[in-house]
Design a protein around this nucleic acid. Structure first.
Ligand code: ZN
Ligand code: ZN
Ligand code: ZN
Ligand code: ZN
Lengths: 388, 388
DNA sequence: ATACGTTCACATGGTTCA
DNA sequence: TGAACCATGTGAACGTAT
């Protein structure tokens, strides 16, 4: 029914907690405007026209263990959530009906309790938070899944179907005829390499995606734009490699990553010898060269982060949108500034900035030269190790 | 059983619903509607009215090693799958019965475990995936078998695989050379035609030729033969027009092509109004007529591909070479069968095949009537747009 | 025949915004 | 404040592989 304003209209400062939530992304850009207002849902167990046990308004279902209207539901929740204390200006016996219910909050809440509503069912701060987080998480996941779907179309890894089927057949035959005991883990071993590739690369892409979105002005990009960005350049690969080469111990050529030890082996290996990675020698050599080259710069975390941002910043966007162009320029400028500032602090020559640019070019060339390597399904596992 | 509200969500009454909510998705479901609700299956080892060891509701069988109801089964599975952690708001000793089971998830799960349910039997993500894939695979196989069976009836004489591979090959070649937009995953333009011809002809001709060449028995044609074929009939024009008219939105008379937006204009035009094309009105009108005519047939990609193949198949070759003649005949036969088969699937009248032939004749007449249009130098640009 | 996962209508919690 | 909305947990019915 129509809410009747009265007396304590002042009430609470009202809602407006929100903000932060980021726009709900405009679920549907409707054209039709019509949006058939769908009939408010009523649970099937309610009789026709059943009344709210508190105020007699039209009930909409069980709420906090009592059959109530939307109004009493909301009132009760707000009261319990914020632990509000009301006091009656009369004799604690105000009548509560659909007209008068907003006159005395104290008596309304009292009647709620008497009518069987229980605050136990009101989620407390913590639970509420958990719920919000869950929803946020799911939202992201959903978006990511969609993106992954699009990405899969855009750069499918090289399937190598022939190899796969040969390997599968031979292995399967082996297990079947020669060593049946192996059959157990066949699930694991014969998993489709393409699937494997996807599941292994997803975390990496997801992180890159999240990083990109966190940059100013990128949060509102839609999925297709993101896909375009991710596929139209090797930027994300370059960023990953940039990260990786800073994890290489150039003295001993160890890749310093934490891996779960297989079993019973020493708890933590100090690192993986580069030679142990199953890539072609060519690639490993380039990796060594470039990581040695960068190690001389002693880049700081901030510098790496900024560099990653500009690498990822899609040129196409900058060209289309002057605002974005300005932003990219700004990032470059800041980076330059910091690099040179650190140069003097680190007692570097004056050449640090040009050197960085030079090395960056080198990095991009190398990534480009080997870009195929990253998409071979058979390499997926090693690539994932590299990018962990 | 009987639902009672409580903490989380209450359960439902068994009402059989019938409500019309139906807002979300509403995927394909049976239309039969009659569907006598068959008695929910109960394993034979259960005694009459045996109870769920967790909540006392009616048990439906062994689930994860304990005799439980459907509710506890689902609750346990979800919890284990998502590795959920609950916490009790009371003293970890909440009573669990059919009424209260939804009050405290922590205690419900605890009771599940105590009652002998084991998470070992809950399939993990990977196993679940494997299962899904297996089911999917089997479904496809089943469908394929059915289709094969259908084809086999239609072509008792021909090896069934051959028919299917012919259809597949022609369709694939068509998508590759003539109309890439048909292919789901080909967001990227045409395959580059063989270079040697590329320089000698317009891209359209080159692609049409490539299509022809990919047909069985045509791969060895040399340039001169090609030229002869291409010039001796309007086949290639007909094929291109056939493609084009299937890109026309007959509601709004828009030609649905993707053009690079000039600059700064809206990123993607929904289509080009036919009237915008710089052809004589005569020609446009015929185009409208013929495209409307074909749109009624709702031709599938395979049908269009096969039709294109037979249109392009040079009569001269068929006459000279009995082998080729047979092949052409075969293509016609396959096309006819598929068209009629689809007629029944699409709930078409029995007239689909004759109608197609009729419309084809019309198409050829129109192309013939306007053939001059395509070769006038001043029209070159527009023709290229049309055939993109 | 059995016991897995899947599907989806439903109920109900929180959230939004006029 | 509360009408409309969104999102998630629930469980009955169901589809399949073993
Ligand atoms: Zn009320
Ligand atoms: Zn009062
Ligand atoms: Zn139970
Ligand atoms: Zn408890």
């Amino acid at each position: 029914m129509s809410p009747i304003p009265s007396r304590l209209n002042s009430s609470t400062s009202s809602t407006s907690s929100g903000s932060s939530t980021s726009s709900p992304s405009t679920p549907y850009h409707h054209v039709g405007r019509t949006r058939t207002r769908q009939a408010p849902y009523i649970p099937s167990y309610l009789e026709e026209g059943q009344q709210c046990v508190v105020c007699g308004d039209k009930a909409t279902g069980l709420h906090y263990q009592a059959i109530t209207c939307e109004g009493c539901k909301g009132f009760f929740r707000r009261t319990a959530q914020k632990r509000l204390q009301y006091s009656c200006k009369e004799n604690n016996d105000c009548e509560i009906n659909v007209i008068s219910r907003n006159v005395c909050q104290a008596c309304r809440f009292k009647k709620c309790l008497i009518s069987g509503m229980t605050t136990d069912l009101v989620l407390d701060e913590q639970e509420r938070n958990a719920k919000r987080q869950l929803i946020e998480k799911n939202r992201e996941k959903k978006e990511l899944d969609q993106l992954m779907g699009l990405l899969k179309e855009s750069f499918p890894c090289l399937p190598i179907n022939e190899v796969k089927s040969i390997v599968d057949n031979v292995s399967e035959a082996y297990c079947k005829w020669i060593d049946p005991s192996l059959k157990m883990d066949s699930n694991f071993r014969f998993q489709d390499p393409v699937e494997q590739f996807n599941s292994l690369m997803t975390p990496t892409l997801a992180r890159t995606f999240a990083f990109l979105k966190s940059l100013e002005g990128f949060s509102s990009l839609d999925l297709n734009q993101i896909r375009e960005i991710m596929t139209s350049s090797n930027g994300w690969l370059e960023v990953q490699i940039l990260k990786t080469i800073h994890k290489i111990d150039v003295e001993n050529w160890l890749l310093l990553i934490e891996e779960d030890a297989p079993q019973g082996s020493p708890p933590r290996s100090p690192g993986v010898p580069l030679g142990n990675l199953r890539f072609e020698k060519n690639f490993i050599d380039d990796l060594k060269r470039i990581s040695e080259s960068f190690s001389n710069l002693q880049m700081t975390t901030e510098e790496i982060a900024l560099l990653s941002a500009v690498i990822l910043f899609p040129e196409s966007l900058a060209e289309k949108n002057p605002e974005m162009k300005k932003q990219k320029k700004q990032l470059w400028t800041i980076l330059e500034h910091i690099v040179e500032q650190n140069a003097s602090i680190l007692d570097f020559g004056i050449e640090r900035w040009p050197k960085l640019l030079n090395k960056l070019m080198n990095l991009q060339m190398i990534v480009n030269r080997h870009s195929k390597v990253f998409f071979e399904a058979t390499n997926a596992r090693e690539v994932a190790r590299l990018f962990t």
